[in-house]
Design a protein around this nucleic acid. Sequence first.
DNA 1: CTGAAAGCGCTTACAG
DNA 2: CTGAAAGCGCTTACAG
Lengths: 346, 346
Amino acid sequence: MATTRKRVTLLDVARHAGVSRATASLVVRQSPLVGETTRQRVVEAMRSLGYVYNAGAARLRRGTSRTVGVIVPNLRNPFFAEMLDGIETVFDTEDMAVMLANTHEDRAKQDAFVRRMREHDVDGVIVCPAAGSDESFLETTDTLGLTVVQALRWISQDRSDYAGTNYADGMRQAVEHLKELGHRRIAFVAGDRQHSAFRDRLEGYRNAIGPEAETIVVKVPLTHEDGRALAGTLMRQTPPSAAICFNDVVALGLLRGLFDLGVDVGRDFSLVGFDNVPEAALSRPALTSVTTNPFAIGEAAARLLLRRLADPEGAPKRTIEPTRLVIRESTGPCPESQAHAPKRRG
Amino acid sequence: MATTRKRVTLLDVARHAGVSRATASLVVRQSPLVGETTRQRVVEAMRSLGYVYNAGAARLRRGTSRTVGVIVPNLRNPFFAEMLDGIETVFDTEDMAVMLANTHEDRAKQDAFVRRMREHDVDGVIVCPAAGSDESFLETTDTLGLTVVQALRWISQDRSDYAGTNYADGMRQAVEHLKELGHRRIAFVAGDRQHSAFRDRLEGYRNAIGPEAETIVVKVPLTHEDGRALAGTLMRQTPPSAAICFNDVVALGLLRGLFDLGVDVGRDFSLVGFDNVPEAALSRPALTSVTTNPFAIGEAAARLLLRRLADPEGAPKRTIEPTRLVIRESTGPCPESQAHAPKRRG
DNA sequence: CTGAAAGCGCTTACAG
DNA sequence: CTGAAAGCGCTTACAG
């Protein structure tokens, strides 16, 4: 159990070392103004007294807290966990502390978190805005005087820094890969949430499909279960010969659902996911997927915030990580273009 | 961009409302001592001035920060992300802020985080100790006067609260399930890290196997790749007829590796994972796995910390979540006990 | 290089 | 129910 003792203050340290409090403060902050022997004495006093720096008191006086907030919509999605890892890694090397909040895509919670973080005096926040967030969120943070960097999803790229990834280009690569394999009826399995990461992909899909081919957009919640259940409805009537999924979570569900129906993915049907999660390499067939590097996005967001804190003025900046299609076993030539009817096992 | 303005203080609010600072403070803290009309006036003043409570200043005076630290060894493991979700959910309802750190299993980092958090004056920390942590870690936190709750892995159950899950019993269920299917040579695919979550499983395995059967422990890093690569070595010579994996990550890798070798898992070989991650239901064959509920463990850890903060004295407490075997397609009768030689697909 | 003083924004007794 | 004062532990000028 932790024993609660009276706090050792800088004044205690100063007395013990026989110097003034100001001098002790300089030693704590590694100032070069203090002579080596004095410094040694103070350091020794800190050690023998068990002194712990009180960041809160310093922050009060100094006005900066060396603390940042991170707000994500869904911790359970490994994608965000990895992005968080990237953010955390950068701030760790800066000796800054990270305050975390999970909105579960709830905008009211998001507003509450932003305020709480402001009350705890974070220097700034990185936020992946909850679905449906609009400019009013940025007005809230403005009113609070809170510096914000948007990550992965953006509300406005004119009002605030943004670190993202090139979803549209990833989508283009996926569509072109399928077109080269002869596919013409390519579905986009989208989520049911409104945010830029959805709109960017959708736009990329529409542009890449082009006017000559048909556009097929189906919206389902982005879960394994919904992906799996989707297989039945997708294969009814005149089914597409290929599908691109919003993320690997829904793609992996759909893959299993198609297997349950006896569809031989990679031969009868082609499937592409997004995010290239580690499991994508393990599925049967292994999933073709668009790599988006969440760790790098997290790092980039953290650096944008650091930059902005160092230089609050200046135009909004953004960084866009590249995406890349990783081709595996789940995509293959369109059976129809080879003049075969789709085959089914069993 | 956030505009930095001079901070609005409680004194500004008090003046604007025509009351004293103390009265304004009482309103902020929702004290019943203030009359309704006065309260209204103060609230209105806060609103029109855009007042933001300064938690840091309050903490300095009051000595409690309404902030807790959470230290995990590996954010990328979905298991910890889910536990974190549970922790965060509880503290959110308590209006407390969560400070996050990721040790990457590095004990030196762990010590640094604990100190940093102490400097930021967290009320306590929840920590899943990095592999190899020993009592010296608890001595460090003791010296810092920091209240700690251990989660998932424990260093000592006598010195500090602990929230975990019943790994030994989960292991017992897994072994007995396999024994009932006729398996006698059952391997335990363990990780290469030293911590209680490993020792608990190992002990459960040894006890459940019993003296009549052979004990086969193989240690590999707990990654998809190492699991996949393990298939070759595991099936050489006189292979076991079944394996229980430390977690689903390595199990899913091994499953794919066995498929690559032509082993028909569920018939020729039986495989059990731990954690029952969502992907376990999706693999082919779907993976039999032991459910450990990380969200519930996270919630339990958070409640233990809340309890301890409210009542610092009292014996260390612990909560153990139950585990449960979920049987799917990856386990089946032992071929040898049916007098068949293991079959391999072409 | 060091010391004495003021102040960051709150809360806590203590009077009234 | 309200007001004046002190203090939480630090940092920041300002002298020396």
